[in-house]
Design a protein around this nucleic acid. Structure first.
Length: 791
DNA sequence: GAACTTGCTGAATTG
DNA sequence: CAGCAAGTTC
């Protein structure tokens, strides 16, 4: 087998360096997956490593599946007596825990249930309620996020409580919810996503026999997307490689975009310290994109300070320029994108396109526009298959079939379809369960036995439910997964109830359930792991796993697009406050993460890249004005081709840039000449002043002409246009105050130039303003100190 | 007990 | 503009 001939020299080195720690810094599009898969094939067929001694870990099932497939292709025709384990972090942990969790002696049994985020939120909601915080400002979702983040950074409920500062009521409340939540998880024999990592690491740390077993088993370990690993994942890998040290990690610090989820970039930056005799190989040749696309990506990410620095190059042609479009609003932007996709596909019918956005909420307008244009699209994220209510309901029945004590699953379906078990009955049931100190399932057993205190109707309804579950439990003992799935749909009355609805909606739900049955049938055929594994797999499916490579158009968040590539890419909604997101405006490190995200987005494109932004956008059902993203400003403007009709930010940015350049040149020659601003009389672009201002700053920064804060009191009659046509000021006049710096109005700042006021908190001159300055992003300013002028 | 109405509050990114 | 909780009606 000649695997190596298709690789460049660096890649070949990465494949053949099989012994000892190895760090592969793989830039975007540098053939990373090829290197990993060839490496695995090489280990097996050239170095004669037994396949089951190899472990490759990824973050998504999709990546794992693709790797498995490609390794399979490389090794086609060879007879292997085992297979390498190619798995996600989470399923690896589940595997370990299903085997050994009882050794932790924390009360968990091997038949534990996995709670996904939705389940966790439900438990937390109940905890908040039971602790009497319900009227509090404790959002269940928010609390879950807080707890998850804490768990991910290696802290438990106790250490969280210890860190609560005196008088911080909210955190104190969260600490108590946290504690109760943890107790309930144990009582329900349930682990949340974070626990999967935590307990697996605990197992390796605490039990030498377990650790030794896996060290013996996994002699060659590969980790994909290493820049995204968090401290728990680092610990896991560390324990697994303790003995043999044959660890190969692949990653790219410029694509680290999961810091918010606990990813620790120092894992990759300090790899050489963690593994002292590590070898480092850089893959810098890009096979994916045109030179222009790489140049733009490089120009943006260059603005980050926290990076090792790496320059991608390609032998691909320089390609077309980047297309830029300024839309009136979100709808126009979506229509533009749909039209352009159509245009491209008319020329090249097989051209795959991706529409990338910062937040899932942006997907809707694009869905509509594509539907109107008759383009088939595929959407990743949002409501994925396993998140649909009907699928979750049936999965809950399946969970009960494995473990009827799972109260979350029980509560979900006890009255779905409706069986006449309402709030009253359930509350009473819950109360008794707490009294007796047993699970809801056991309580049902007691009540149906001697049902005092319950209406006969309730008792008989409970009996019906009990019989259904008992039957499912029995079925799960002897039948294949698909049979239990069918029973969970048919014998529970679920499908009958949907059928009787007679609506289109119910029809599509039934179809989804049929899909679930199909999935189970496939599962039985291919994996044959039984119901337990089927449920585990269903619980660990992620949004990104739903991506269908062959779809003509794919809509997804930029995060979801990491690792993928498309000939035609649209990056949409490039607006200040949206991308970069407003929540990252205050923190430099977070802004850098947004910038890396922008880098990821750009480098998804193979041949054509479009960037667009809208002037106004609906947020929370209200129209708000928007300014272009500072990332647009970081792109080399001469590489952008303006497709906007009429005036646009780019046209003005360009003219002021070139004017400024001429101006600067003159100044350097000692000719103090005309101010460039007189050239801007057109004033068609709303923020033209701020653009000019911005470029004054820009040249200044690079040693151009001295400031001149432009105390321009020109008072052009455009003021009347300000309140009439600016949607923001019209909609938010409620916060009016004497100062005049109300949301929607424009202000001038000595350093940042003209900006748009987005928010105003407090009153008088102590008021805090959030202002968006084109090219600088959002700033929070105290009115008193900011020295703002009306503009 | 279930189906419907009103009113409030809140989405950043994900396994 | 959502989705969800509490309130209202049958």
């Amino acid at each position: 087998m000649d695997f190596l001939s298709s690789l460049n020299e660096r890649q070949r080195e990465a494949v053949t360096t099989t012994e000892g720690p190895l760090l592969i810094l793989a830039g975007a599009g540098s053939g990373k997956t090829r290197v990993i898969t060839v490496r695995i094939a090489h280990l097996i067929s050239e170095r004669e490593v037994a396949p089951h001694n190899i472990l490759a870990v990824t973050f998504t099932n999709k990546a794992a599946g693709e790797m498995r497939e490609r390794v399979g292709q490389l090794l086609a025709g060879q007879r292997l007596e085992s297979a390498p384990l190619i798995s996600t972090f989470h399923s690896l942990c589940v595997r370990m825990l299903r085997r050994d969790i009882e050794k932790l002696a924390e009360g968990y049994t091997r038949s534990f249930t996995i709670y996904d985020q939705d389940d966790s939120v439900r438990v937390i909601k109940a905890c908040i309620k039971d602790l009497g915080y319900d009227d509090q400002k404790l959002g269940a979702r928010q609390t879950q996020g807080q707890i998850s983040h804490t768990k991910n950074s290696g802290l438990d409920a106790e250490s969280y409580a210890a860190r609560v500062e005196y008088g911080d009521e909210k955190r104190a409340a969260i600490a108590r919810v946290f504690k109760l939540y943890e107790e309930r998880l144990v009582n329900n024999n349930a682990l949340d996503f974070d626990d999967l990592m935590i307990k697996a690491v605990k197992l390796l740390r605490g039990r030498e026999d377990v650790c030794a077993h896996y060290n013996e088993r996994f002699r060659y370990i590969l980790v994909d997307e290493y820049q995204d690993t968090n401290s728990l994942q680092f610990a896991l890998i560390h324990f697994l490689t303790e003995k043999q040290q044959n660890i190969c990690v692949v990653g790219d610090e410029d694509q680290s975009v999961y810091k918010w989820r606990g990813a620790d970039i120092t894992n990759i930056l300090n790899f050489e310290q963690h593994y002292p005799n590590a070898k480092v190989i850089r893959l810098e040749q890009n096979y994916r994109s045109t030179q222009t696309i790489l140049d733009v990506a490089g120009a943006v990410v260059k603005n980050n300070t926290e990076r090792k620095g790496k320059t991608l190059w390609t032998s691909n042609p320089s390609g077309e320029s980047i297309r830029y479009y300024q839309a009136l609003d979100g709808d126009t932007e979506a229509r533009f994108v749909a039209a352009k996709i159509e245009e491209h596909r008319r020329r090249e019918p097989d051209l795959r396109a991706a529409v990338l956005y910062r937040t899932n909420a942006q997907s809707r307008v694009f869905e509509e526009a594509l539907r109107r244009a008759g383009l088939a699209y595929n959407i990743v994220g949002g409501f994925s298959f396993y998140e649909r209510a009907e699928v979750r309901d049936v999965v809950s029945y399946l969970k009960l079939a494995m473990n009827p004590h799972d109260s979350i699953a029980l509560l979900r379906v006890i009255n779905t379809p409706t069986r006449g078990l309402g709030k009253q009955t359930l509350d009473e049931l819950d109360r008794r369960a707490k009294d007796y100190g047993v699970s809801l399932w056991e309580t049902i057993g007691i009540v149906t036995d001697k049902g005092e205190g319950f209406s006969p109707r309730a008792v008989s309804a409970l009996k019906t439910f009990q019989t259904i579950i008992t039957n499912l439990v029995a079925l799960a003992q002897k039948e294949a997964a698909s049979e239990v799935v069918k029973a969970a749909i048919l014998d529970t009355g679920y499908s009958d109830s949907l059928k009787s609805e007679n609506s289109e909606e119910a029809e599509s739900r039934l179809e989804n359930l049929q899909e679930l049955v199909n999935a189970a049938v496939d599962y039985d055929k291919e994996e044959g792991g039984g119901l337990r594994d089927f449920i585990d797999a269903a619980a660990l499916v992620s949004d990104t796993d739903q991506y269908n490579r062959d779809a003509p158009v794919t809509l997804m968040t930029i995060h979801a697009a990491k690792g993928l590539e498309f000939p035609l890419v649209f990056i949409v909604g490039m607006e200040d406050g949206l991308f970069p997101h407003s929540r990252s405006a205050t923190d430099m490190a977070e802004l850098e993460e947004e910038r890396r995200l922008c880098y990821v987005a750009i480098t998804r494109a193979e041949r054509f890249l479009y960037v667009s932004h809208a002037m106004k956008r609906r947020v929370y059902g209200e129209e708000v004005a928007a300014e272009p993203s500072q990332f647009l400003n970081e792109m080399p403007l001469e590489m952008l081709e303006d497709l906007s009709r009429g005036p646009s930010w780019l046209k003005f940015a360009r003219s002021s840039a070139s004017l400024e350049a001429r101006h600067t040149a003159k100044a350097l020659r000692g000719e103090t000449g005309a101010k460039p601003e007189k050239k801007f009389d057109g004033k068609t672009y709303d923020s033209v002043d701020s653009i000019a201002e911005f470029f004054r700053q820009r040249t200044q920064k690079f040693g151009g002409t001295p400031p001149k804060p432009a105390p321009r009191v020109v008072k052009h009659p455009a003021a009347q246009q300000g309140s009439a046509s600016s949607p923001a000021s019209a909609s938010s006049s409620s916060t009016s105050s004497d100062s005049g710096f109300v949301p929607g109005s424009h202000v001038r700042h000595a350093k940042y130039g003209r900006g748009l006021v987005l928010r105003r908190e407090g009153n008088g001159d102590a008021a805090k303003l959030t202002v968006s300055f084109p090219g600088f992003g959002q700033k929070k300013l105290i009115e008193k100190y900011a020295g703002l002028e009306k503009a």
